[in-house]
Design a protein around this nucleic acid. Structure first.
Length: 1051
RNA sequence: GGGCCAGUAGCUCAGUCGGUUAGAGCGCAGUCCUGAUAAGACUGAGGUCCCUGGUUCGAGUCCAGGCUGGCCCA
């Protein structure tokens, strides 16, 4: 006996029970170790999740893929690694800890103590690693949760040292002086990786017009425009486009130079005095806006030529401050002799040499600068200007550009090497390679330093002599330590402890400190294909698992982040690909396709999703989605997928258990051979094996969305064709119990078939929806299969010998014809309960005509007609249409198809139909067409209702004879009694007595169809008379006939 | 300005190798079916398959150009 199954199931509650079951039985442990030492191996490397907050439903998407692919391969017998990873070093952690402590700047951290601060960062990572682990378990994500790796681990950090050392050996590491985007709040530069995505906002800035008076031309000025007034303090040049036209205009008694195209910058009356080329202005000297500042001493301000000067905004004369603008700095390097003045310190405060500005913050100096300019008489005009401006992706502060010294890995040689390695990988979706190569082509040198506290300690020791060393391991450091090793020993290689160690400069012998910088966090994540599998300590083990067979992550972002760093580090260390396959997926949106934001209120918490829709529904939703497209996630979508798969699946399961228990079906009994089972059974088993093949193929190629759709189609077939068509087989008496002599072989076949479908489905779907499949498997198979869990069972293998493509095609034809027949009935307004005399069909070709007998009974029952036949010899009452079957004719005749179509249109459709339905070819003027090459359909027929589709036609007779009418009434009667049984609360298997009072028609029906009604309603007797006390009674009207029915439980 | 992707019903999306009348779900209107089904079936309304040109007997599908949107990079 199976445990009874309620058709109304609470999936989240079921999932909690299953979680408890796994917990009790140690199922996860058994799963993780089931394939230890297996010959087949599949290597997965987890892209570390940031352990800084709880995970969201978008993480659950990726984690579903990871679990899905791992589970599939586990059931396929592959030995695998199940190591989850946490990413925990870097600014994002620091920012959150700062928030917790109420800090507003780096100074607070220094005051608090770097050691204490770093400890809090570590604690935060461990805290959220724990939260995420528990959430993942709720998702059904089966990993080795006690052995997750951390990017903050010693091993991870030291392996990066090794990588950096290799880079240094090849001369790729250098310290560069450059103007970089800088966050004054965080006190750090931002790398290109960080700024390109979330890094921009629409911000309103001042658009300030200022005059630069010319030195040798009294009364003449350049007009320049800037949106960053503070940079004027560092001005050293003004740039014009050499090939563009400029004008000198008289304006309020002085002469002003602006670009001709931007003359509108001058407000009010003015007169053009002269027109000239930009190149004519080059070399002119002018008075700078802040020449009085000490730092400006000795700077000669002049006009320079620059091709990048735009005529779209401003004045066409660009203020150049090489110490405060990236392009400006590039220009200064190009020209070689421009002054470079860097005004800001780490926190955006003006440095020494700026007189009254020194110590003031960049965010607070606009007003005083305006005043100063006005005093000097060079302030022209101020207006608001909206533009996209970079902000800090973590704290939202507006960035400034600042001249800094940072450490880089040169990409000039690496770019090509990494690109070649990228090409060896299979990228899914296919455009991934192009994206990655595009990024590699465009990216500058990789900035790896960050002036922060919590992160990789860059093992760079720069001596005052100008030489620098890169340390490659802790042993290396110990060996070279000149002092401080003792106080460091026992600590993780982080600030501040690591900085106690000083080494000797390998060039001059001086004692040198480590640079203060920490590393770019993508170094941390990129090294994991080495650090997590023993690259340094156990090379054999590493070789066993490297390269990975697959990874999966969200692609927006990762082309320049994880995929990039993984590739680069693997290229440097081993010159080969870190993974054979990159599977990736797009972004999650809300149900309306809008970005999810906590502040917008449209974000869905993982816990809410798990408890309201269930983890299985969530997982199925993810699995069936095309990963290249954004996923619109929400409760409505979850309802939809639950209806597509889980409810029909559960209903079939519930149906099976209900009847199997009634009949005491025993799956361990002798099962009828497939060949002796009904064709319907053979069909669904064929479909099942086709499904297994399809799902297996889709999983092997990392395309679960393809397999998922096939599953939904199968469940649809199972529920709405196999079970519906088989119901009668389960009801009929002749108990299967015992399965021995006298058992109904057909009924037994039905049970075995449905049982096989269900148990196979649980195994097939176990990686996708692990909870509901476990629940079903435990009840259906469980101990009988000798397995404790569906997840310890093997993945189903398709048995090709049980696939019958012809049968499959035939059944699909039966479905198609039934559907058309129902359509025809519906058009005529005749319900299916009313039997009709005949359905006549037009098929494509003689092959299908041959198949018709095979499916005739199915169609007959579906359409409730007495006969299904080919539409032939119907004579002149019909109107036919004939068309060429282009799919067949095209390849055969090519360009002559047009001719054929023309000749066919001249042929008589009725004749053509008669010829074809007898299986003979149609002769045209120049061509002879086989039956399959012509498509015939019927448009209308007297006495018939007709429906056509996809080249098929079904016509049902519309006349209802007295005999048919009575039969229809009988079915109607059955229908009413069935409903009453349910209303009265009888059990499905209860026997009843039926009482009725009604007109003669009713009696006539029962005189002919009493047996049928009794059998259908499980009635012992049908009595013409008043129902007795205690009977459930209802009054009915059927087609205008009044009658009273009573039902009473028998016995 | 360059690269990648997408554009199919009111919405969300399928659409295989180029081939008959381009499909599904949701939503709307209605009918039916139900002795597993919080379901299901059917009907109806709703499509210049972004546009233009090309290849082809035949283009939603292939090619070229353009438009719009998204992402990435300048």
């Amino acid at each position: 006996m199976f445990d009874p199954v309620n058709s109304k199931v609470d999936f989240p509650a079921l999932e909690r029970e299953v979680l408890a079951f796994w917990e009790e039985n140690g199922t996860v442990e058994k799963y993780l170790t089931r394939n230890k030492g297996a010959e087949k191996r599949a290597s997965f490397i987890d892209g570390p999740i940031t352990a800084n907050n709880p995970m969201g439903v978008h993480h659950a998407w990726g984690r579903t893929y990871k679990d899905l692919f791992l589970r599939y391969r586990a059931m396929k017998g592959f030995e695998q690694r199940f190591q989850n990873g946490f990413d925990g070093q870097g600014l994002w952690i620091e920012v959150e800890v700062e928030k917790e402590l109420g800090f507003t700047s780096k100074r607070d951290i220094d005051a608090y103590g770097i050691g204490r601060f770093v400890e809090l960062c570590k604690e935060r990572v461990l805290r959220f690693a724990d939260v995420i682990s528990r959430q993942s378990i709720r998702l059904g994500y089966w990993m080795d949760w006690d052995n997750s790796y951390h990017t903050m681990s010693d091993e991870n950090n030291y392996t990066i040292w090794l990588f950096l050392k290799k880079c240094h050996e090849r001369g790729w590491i250098y310290e560069g002086r450059d103007v970089m985007p800088w966050c004054p709040r965080c006190g750090t530069g931002l790398s290109q990786h960080e700024i390109v995505t979330e890094g921009y906002q629409e911000i309103e800035h001042p658009g300030l017009y200022v005059k630069f008076p010319l030195r040798d031309h009294a009364g003449e000025s350049l007009l320049v425009w800037t949106t960053t007034p503070w940079t004027l303090t560092a001005n050293t040049a003004a740039a014009v486009h050499p090939d563009r036209r400029y004008v000198k205009a008289r304006y309020r008694g002085e002469a002003i130079y602006v670009a001709k195209a931007l003359l509108s910058a001058l407000r009010g009356e003015h007169e053009v005095l002269e027109e000239l080329d930009g190149r004519d202005l080059v070399g002119l000297r002018y008075v700078g806006p802040f020449d009085e500042l000490p730092v400006q001493e000795g700077v000669e301000h002049r006009v320079v030529a620059w091709d990048e000067v735009s005529e779209n905004e401003g004045t066409g004369i660009v203020h150049i401050a090489p110490g405060a603008g990236a392009e400006d700095f590039a220009l200064s390097k190009e020209l070689g002799d421009l002054g470079v003045i860097a005004p800001l310190d780490d926190f955006g405060d003006f440095v020494e040499g700026f007189d009254w500005l020194t110590g003031r913050n960049v965010y607070d100096v606009n007003e005083p600068i305006y005043s100063s300019l006005k005093e000097k008489g060079v302030f022209y005009r101020l207006e608001n200007y909206r533009h996209r401006y970079p902000v800090c992706w973590r704290c939202g502060s507006e960035l400034v550009h600042r001249l800094v010294e940072e450490w880089f890995i040169s990409m000039s040689e690496l770019r090509g090497l990494v690109s070649e390695v990228a090409k060896k990988i299979r990228w899914l979706p296919g455009f991934g390679l192009q994206r990655e190569l595009d990024w590699l082509r465009n990216m500058d040198d990789w900035m790896i330093s960050k002036k922060r506290y919590w992160g990789l300690a860059l093992p760079i020791y720069k001596c005052e002599c100008g030489h620098f060393d890169v340390i490659g391991s802790e042993e290396d450091l110990r060996a070279r330590a000149a002092s401080g090793w003792d106080s460091f020993e026992g600590h993780s290689p982080h600030r501040p402890w690591i900085d106690a160690v000083k080494v000797e400069c390998s060039k001059c012998g001086e004692e040198v400190s480590r640079i203060a910088d920490v590393g770019n966090p993508w170094l941390d994540a990129g090294i994991v294909s080495f650090s997590t599998i023993g690259y340094r300590e156990d090379r054999e083990h590493w070789m066993k698992w490297f390269p990975a067979d697959w990874i999966t992550e969200s692609f927006p972002g990762q082309f320049r982040n994880w995929f990039y760093s993984l590739l680069t580090m693997s290229t440097v260390l081993e010159g080969r690909e870190p993974t054979r396959t990159v599977h990736s997926y797009a972004l999650m949106r809300d149900e309306n396709g809008e970005e999810m934001h906590k502040s917008k209120g449209n974000a869905i918490w993982f816990e809410d999703a798990a408890e309201r829709m269930g983890a299985d529904a969530m997982r199925w939703l993810y699995s069936r989605h095309n990963p290249a497209a954004n996923l619109n996630f929400g409760f409505g979508v979850a309802d939809d997928v639950r209806r597509r798969l889980m409810i029909p699946l559960w209903n079939v399961y519930s149906f099976f258990v209900t009847y199997a228990n009634i009949d005491r079906f025993d799956p361990s009994a002798d099962r009828p051979d497939l060949s002796e089972r009904a064709e319907l059974d053979q069909w669904i088993i064929s479909e099942l094996n086709m499904l297994i093949a399809e799902v297996t193929d889709s999983m092997d190629s990392f395309e679960p969305e393809r397999g998922s759709r096939a599953v939904e189609e199968f469940v649809e077939y199972l529920s709405n064709w196999y079970v519906r068509r088989s119901r009668r087989r389960f009801w009929k008496s002749g108990l299967a119990g015992g399965a021995g002599r006298g058992a109904d072989r057909d009924k037994l076949s039905a049970y075995f078939t449905l049982y096989e479908c269900l148990v196979t489905l649980t195994r097939l779907l176990a990686p996708f929806i692990p909870f509901v499949t476990e629940s079903m498997y435990q009840n259906l198979a469980g101990a009988r299969n000798g397995r404790e869990s569906v997840h310890l069972d093997d993945y189903p293998e398709a048995d090709r010998s049980r696939i019958d493509a012809g049968l499959s095609a035939a059944t699909r034809l039966a479905m198609r014809l039934s559907s058309l027949g129902r359509s025809a009935r519906s058009k005529a307004g005749i319900k299916v309960r009313q039997p009709l005399a005949a359905a006549l069909v037009i098929l494509h070709d003689s092959d299908e005509i041959d198949v018709l007998p095979r499916i005739e009974a199915q169609v007959r029952e579906e359409l409730n007609v007495k006969e299904v036949a080919l539409l032939e010899d119907a004579g002149s009452v019909l109107s036919f249409e004939i068309k060429p079957n282009l799919q067949v004719l095209g390849p055969k005749y090519g360009s002559r198809v047009r001719d054929i179509a023309a000749q066919l249109s001249q042929a008589d459709p009725g004749e053509a139909h008669d010829v074809i339905s007898s299986g003979r070819p149609v002769c045209l003027e120049d061509y002879t067409l086989e039956p399959g090459e012509v498509i015939v359909s019927s448009m209308s027929m007297a006495g018939y209702s007709v429906a056509s589709g996809a080249g098929y036609t079904v016509a049902v007779t519309t006349g209802v004879s007295e005999e048919l009418r009575l039969e229809g009434l009988a079915r109607e009667l059955v229908h009413r009694v069935q409903n009453m049984r349910r209303e009265a609360g009888f059990d499905i298997a209860d026997r009843i007595d039926v009482y009725y009072r009604g007109q003669d028609d009713v009696r006539r029906v029962l005189s002919v169809h009493a047996d049928y009604v009794e059998q259908e309603t499980l009635s012992r007797v049908i009595v013409d008379g008043e129902p007795p006390e205690g009977a459930y009674v209802e009054s009915h009207k059927i087609d205008g006939l009044a009658l009273t029915l009573g039902v009473l439980r028998a016995g």
